[in-house]
């Protein structure tokens, strides 16, 4: 298993007291497998992704990524895990505004120390970004920025891709095209994909679908 989530609990303290977002969640994901995580707003989908990426820590339970218990690692080790094993695709793209498209695409692969130029060129070409290499993020449309964000992750060949509503800002047709590419490229790179989405239609195109409700698998 590339990902094992075992009895994870997570609460947040808000103005109305403590709110439990994840309540003893169990989930597995095999290498190369794709899984859609659906659920209503506040069901804990995005929180789960941040816990898997090591951006936050669970209150209880165990998260194993590629044989390492994420919540037992220190900050540096969690950073190394994100750098080498996990790839994040954010809903808001989070491109680096001072780097042009080409540099943004290569950035995570360079961080991971495995920049593979032929593979980068292939990803860039298949995402339709070849002619946009010299542009800066502010000069791109929302769909183009989303493709750069996906390309940045895929170019680094992570073992596990975590995508938080990667097509949330796109219309249906554009969302379908982007998802096609994501699935195709993650399959070619051998990566597992855990994708958060509100769309049942898109979720149905992945290998497996898990619905979260009140912090548990429904």
């Amino acid at each position: 298993m590339i990902l094992t989530i075992d009895g994870v609990r997570k609460s947040f303290t808000g103005p109305e007291g403590s709110v439990r977002v994840l309540d003893g969640l169990h989930l597995d994901l095999a290498a190369g497998e794709t899984l859609a995580l659906t659920g209503e707003s506040g069901s804990g989908k995005s929180t789960l992704l941040t816990l898997v990426a090591g951006l936050d820590a669970p209150d209880e339970g165990r998260i194993m990524v590629s044989g390492q218990q994420v919540n037992a690692l220190d900050d540096s080790a969690r950073a190394a895990l994100r750098r080498t094993t996990v790839g994040l695709v954010f809903q808001q793209f989070n491109l680096i505004p001072s780097l042009n498209v080409a540099a943004n695409l290569a950035f995570q692969a360079r961080l991971a120390g495995r920049l593979d130029m032929p593979w980068l060129e292939e990803v860039t070409g298949r995402l339709g970004l070849s002619d946009l290499g010299n542009r800066y993020p502010e000069q791109l449309s929302g769909g183009q920025q989303q493709r750069v964000a996906i390309g940045r992750t895929l170019a680094a060949r992570p073992a596990l891709i975590l995508a938080d509503e990667p097509t949330g800002n796109l219309d249906e047709a554009a969302a379908d095209r982007v998802l096609d590419l994501m699935l195709e490229l993650s399959r070619d790179s051998g990566a597992a994909l855990l994708m958060v989405t509100h769309s049942k239609r898109l979720a149905g195109r992945l290998d497996r679908r898990v619905h979260l409700s009140r912090g548990r698998v429904a």
């Binding site: 950073a79 190394a80 996990v86 680096i96």
Partner: peptide
């Protein structure tokens, strides 16, 4: 962003 992409603090 670069912290999230794996650069330690």
């Amino acid at each position: 962003t670069i912290r999230a992409l794996g650069v330690p603090a």
